[in-house]
Write a protein that binds this DNA or RNA. Structure first.
Length: 386
DNA sequence: CAACATGATTATAC
DNA sequence: GTATAATCATGTTG
């Protein structure tokens, strides 16, 4: 304290005088003795423990979000953005995406500059303390271990500051993600094309609207959406249709009529539903593939007008029989509720028609058949006939 | 802007 | 794993 009050030169001079003082060795040995006696208490001080779990978590998260590593194109960012817009539309995701990336990059920069500042300060302070201790070691006994210990303590202190920085960075990133990448905020209605494709399938498989994985892929491809979007759509559609079938009647009429026309044009009048022996050549696939082939496959404007040419799939599936039934039911609504409505009750209640339908039964129901949507069964919907 | 439509998510069951 | 049912949050419409 005294030294700080004096000029540097004066201090240097005093230090030199002290070092050269003839009593200095004596003083040193006395200090050594004192230290001998107190050393045990000094050693009682424990070193800072290993970085705790929370710090580890923060580190992992920052790494995952692409914050920790300087500008590596932001791995976490792109991944998250992709998840949010699952193959949807590249145009809009581009804009939002870059906005997100810009903000994330801002956070990253801030984080790194702050971190750099802290590290710099830590280094300087450590160096300062080390120098000081080394200087003092000429007067009093200071072991390297003690210096090491002090350095450890300093690092510990700075680490806790760093942790606060990491914590707030994490919070900022989370907020950013919530704002930009919450898929629900990104919801966009499907294109007309996609809706048409999905509805077509739905209403032509009304008695068992559970597309197989392959069918979903096909629908996804044709609608320009992802398979999981197809699954979502069917999930929503089933539940909403079932909840309020009346509301969907018009839609149902439109689509069943469409598919019916389609089917008859494809098939001609002679063929009827083929024997239910066919393996898994799902009715839906048949339908899909035909449309696909007749229109050059991939997306593009696809007004689901009846395909004119006779398709390469003369073989009709059970679904086609169903379509006809539905069309019939549509044209001549049954006294109560309307023809289509009755079909749907079977999804969950096979006994509604008096005959347990092995196909439309839910899995686990004490009837026959395996998982419902893996393979639309040959008899699907035929209970209507009996 | 309220009401409805709709895609996505969540809780839960199997 | 997939399914339903409820719910959320946004988009659309009148």
């Amino acid at each position: 304290m005294a030294i700080t009050d004096q000029s540097l030169d004066e201090a240097q001079a005093r230090k030199h005088a002290l070092n050269c003082h003839r009593m200095k060795p004596a003083l040193f040995s006395v200090l050594c003795e004192i230290k001998e006696k107190t050393v045990s208490s000094i050693h009682g001080i424990q070193e800072v423990g290993p970085p705790d779990a929370q710090l580890l978590r923060l580190d992992n998260m920052l790494l995952a979000e692409g914050v920790s590593r300087p500008e590596k194109q932001g791995r976490g960012a792109s991944a998250a953005a992709n998840a949010a817009t699952p193959g949807g539309r590249p145009n809009d995701s581009g804009l939002e995406h870059s906005d997100y990336r810009a903000k994330l990059s801002q956070i990253r920069q801030m984080y790194h500059s702050e971190l750099e500042k802290y590290e710099q300060a830590c280094r300087e302070f450590t160096m300062h303390v080390t120098n000081l201790l080394q200087e003092q070691s000429r007067i009093r006994p200071v072991s390297p271990a003690e210096i090491e210990h002090m350095v450890g303590v300093i690092h510990g202190k700075f680490q806790s500051i760093q942790m606060q920085l990491k914590q707030s960075t994490c919070e900022a990133v989370m907020a950013l993600r919530a704002r930009f990448l919450d898929a629900r905020r990104k919801r966009q209605n499907f294109s007309k094309q996609a809706t048409e494709v999905l509805n077509e399938y739905f209403y032509s498989h009304l008695s068992n609207p559970y597309p197989s994985e392959e069918a979903k892929e096909e629908l996804a491809r044709r609608g320009g959406i992802t398979v999981s979007q197809v699954s979502n759509w069917f999930g929503n559609k089933r539940i909403r249709y079932k909840k309020n079938m009346r509301k969907f009647q018009e839609e149902a009429t439109i689509y069943t009529a469409k598919t019916a026309v389609d089917a008859t044009e494809v098939r001609g009048s002679g063929r009827q539903a083929s024997p239910p022996s066919m393996s898994h050549s799902r009715a839906g696939d048949c339908h899909l593939r035909h449309r696909c082939a007749s229109q050059g496959g991939n997306a593009g404007p696809d007004p689901p007008t009846p395909a004119g040419s006779s398709g390469p799939f003369p073989l009709t599936g059970p679904g086609d029989a169903l379509i006809r039934l539905q069309t019939l039911a549509c044209v001549q609504p049954s006294p109560r509720g309307g023809g289509l409505l009755a079909q749907v009750s079977l999804w969950h209640n096979p006994k509604a028609c008096g005959v347990p339908d092995p196909v439309t039964s839910r899995p686990g129901a004490p009837v026959v058949a395996g998982p419902r949507d893996r393979r639309p069964q040959p008899h699907r919907g035929l209970c209507k006939l009996s």
